[in-house]
Every structure is written in structure tokens, then in C-alpha cells.
Design a protein around this nucleic acid. Structure first.
Length: 218
DNA sequence: AAAACGGGGGC
DNA sequence: GCCCCAGTTTT
């Protein structure tokens, strides 16, 4: 990164605090303390808005916040619990599949290495890295659509491939920033650096922006 | 009626 | 690398 990464991080941090909403943060923090919850809520979040995901997760985890309890539920029950998130059939089957896999292979615990996480069905690099960062508090670079879009707009990368963005960040971003990077950028991506019609005129990060791919992402 | 919400996997 | 997947909520 050519620019002052420390300054950028501080800006992101202060912006993040502006976007915090107590109720959402409370649920999110509850999920964060449990790697299994992080894993499952990430699957629920597929093609689903964040508030809906959190509400569905909260309902599901109040019934079962570990693989053993999850396997006591039928697919119908899981479907009903996560219903508003959409794609509930596919998701409920996957949730129970993964629960079974974790019980059979890891005594019901979520593995804490990238390689082992990637062996789980339905888990790719984004999900695996998020489980490491949020579930285990291990430094990892998690590139989701927000991180990927903003890094492209800033000119750090110029690629459609999130894996490439991940590799560049691993190389250029100091490890001490890995834990919070995804969280801050997701918040910024949702509130300011949005996919369509981003709020560039009031953006605090414009000094860092290469101003490419602004109009529309995707 | 149309758009928004995203990541994994198959080829 | 490109395309497919498939359902809700919001506008």
C-alpha cells in the first residue's frame, strides 16, 4: 500500500463507531463468541440482508447453538427458524450436514485451521477466514464483497477475483490490522462505499480512493 | 413489478 | 474465469 495505512485504519475505526447500532451489535457480539455460530450464521447470510440474518441466527441459536443440539432438530424445524432469510431448504440441509460432519470428525467442535475449515461442505475462503477472525479471534484476512469492492476502488487491486485481493492484503496489510479490517470495511461498505450510488461527496476516505469502479459494482 | 441481499461450486 | 444457484424483503 502506498498510502498511510495507519491513518486509513484510524479513519475506518472512527467511522465504524458512527454506524454501530446497539441492538445489532449485541446480537453480533453474541455470535462472535461461538465459532459454530459464526460458521452457521455466515451460511444463513447468503443472499440475505444483515438484519434478517441476525434475527434468523438469533432464533436458530436460541434453540441450538452447537452441532449436537442442532442435530436434534428436523430440517423442517430449522427451515421454520431461519425462514425469512430465504433459500431455507438448501440452507437447512447444509446446516444439518455440517453439524453431522463436525460431530463425526471433530467431536462437535469447529476446527481452527484454514485447511480443515475448507474441507467442510459449503465453506470457502471467505467463510473459513471469517470463522478464524470472528470465531477464534485469530488474525486472518477475510475478503467479502465489501472488502473486495473497496480495495478495488482504492486501487489496491484491480481484479474480479477475491482470492487475489486476499493475497495482496496478506502481503500489504500489517497483521495487527487483520482482526478488525473486515468488520470496519463491511460497515463502511454498507453505509458509505455502497455498491450502487456510494456517498462519495461526504466520504472521509476520498484521499485514499483511486476513484475507479465507482458508478456501479457488478 | 423490480431490485436488493452473496458466496460456493461446477465446468 | 464465467455461469449457475433460487427465495425473501423492500421499494
Amino acid at each position: 500500500m502506498n498510502f498511510d495505512i495507519d491513518k486509513l485504519f484510524l479513519l475506518l475505526e472512527s467511522e465504524y463507531k458512527r454506524f454501530e447500532t446497539p441492538s445489532v451489535t449485541k446480537i453480533a457480539n453474541l455470535i462472535k463468541s461461538n465459532p459454530f455460530a459464526v460458521l452457521i450464521s455466515t451460511l444463513i447470510s447468503l443472499r440475505t440482508k444483515d438484519e434478517v440474518t441476525l434475527k434468523a441466527s438469533e432464533r436458530l441459536f436460541s434453540r441450538a447453538d452447537n452441532p449436537f443440539d442442532m442435530l436434534k432438530l428436523s430440517t423442517d424445524e430449522v427451515e421454520r427458524l431461519i425462514y425469512p432469510a430465504g433459500f431455507y431448504r438448501k440452507k437447512s440441509l447444509l446446516i444439518l450436514d455440517i453439524s453431522k460432519y463436525l460431530v463425526e470428525n471433530y467431536q462437535g467442535r469447529v476446527p481452527n485451521s484454514l485447511d480443515e475449515l475448507l474441507k467442510i461442505k459449503g465453506v470457502g475462503r471467505k467463510t473459513a477466514n471469517l470463522v478464524l477472525v470472528e470465531g477464534f479471534g485469530v488474525p486472518a484476512v477475510c475478503v467479502d464483497t465489501h472488502v473486495h469492492r473497496i480495495m478495488n476502488r482504492m486501487g489496491l487491486v484491480n481484479t474480479k477475483n477475491p482470492d487475489e485481493t486476499e493475497m495482496v492484503l496478506r502481503d500489504k496489510l500489517p497483521v495487527k490490522y487483520w482482526i478488525k479490517w473486515n468488520e470496519y470495511l463491511v460497515a463502511y461498505g454498507q453505509n458509505v462505499c455502497k455498491p450502487i450510488s456510494p456517498l462519495c461527496s461526504t466520504c472521509k476516505l476520498s484521499d485514499f480512493c483511486a476513484k475507479i469502479n465507482i458508478k456501479r459494482w457488478r
